[in-house]
């Protein structure tokens, strides 16, 4: 998973550091990540520069499909789109292909994606902990996958 939850202790919420609907830009949320794209295709679909995919959700395009770690998902027909002489990756089409729900605020040009369901299969089937990256209060990133060799208790609370 891409590094999530940027540490901005001075901010109420990390998303404060992400511009919304600045001139011509598009915002994509995935996990705790907020990525601002300045170059996207036009139309109702979210067409991104293929090079931007990995910083959005940690997947990379390879000959066998969109891959993250050991997981590779073959691309659906029409995933790569030609528009205005440039090649784009249809991120919303890919989401529909893999059963990944999303919510879009088209007016503000923000797309918020849920997890790719296949990334949760190892927990659902084998009880393996999710590949989660958390930033602690000091700004250090802790990846659950890096804790191997140690026991970990992860416990939630809230002020409310």
């Amino acid at each position: 998973m891409a590094e999530t939850m940027m540490a901005y202790p001075e901010l109420r919420h990390p998303f404060e550091a992400t511009p919304v609907h600045s001139e011509g830009s598009t915002t994509v949320l995935y996990g705790g990540n907020a990525v601002t794209l300045t170059d996207t295709g036009s139309g109702d679909k979210l067409l991104i520069d293929p090079a931007d995919l990995s910083r959005i959700n940690g997947f990379e395009l390879k000959p066998e499909g969109a891959c993250r770690g050991d997981l590779c998902i073959p691309l659906p027909d029409g995933a790569l789109v030609e528009q205005d002489g440039k090649g784009w990756f249809d991120l919303t089409g890919f989401a529909e292909h893999v059963g990944q729900p999303y919510v879009a605020d088209v007016e503000a040009r923000v797309w918020s994606f849920s997890d790719v369901p296949a990334t949760r299969d190892d927990m659902r089937v084998n009880a393996m902990a999710p590949d989660l990256a958390l930033t602690d209060r000091s700004g250090e990133v802790i990846r659950i996958a890096d804790l191997k060799g140690k026991k970990a208790l992860i416990v939630t609370w809230s002020s409310w």
Partner: peptide, 11 residues
């Protein structure tokens, strides 16, 4: 060899 991660679910 024990890690405790305490997480506030808090907007």
């Amino acid at each position: 060899n024990f890690v405790m991660i305490v997480v506030a679910e808090d907007t």
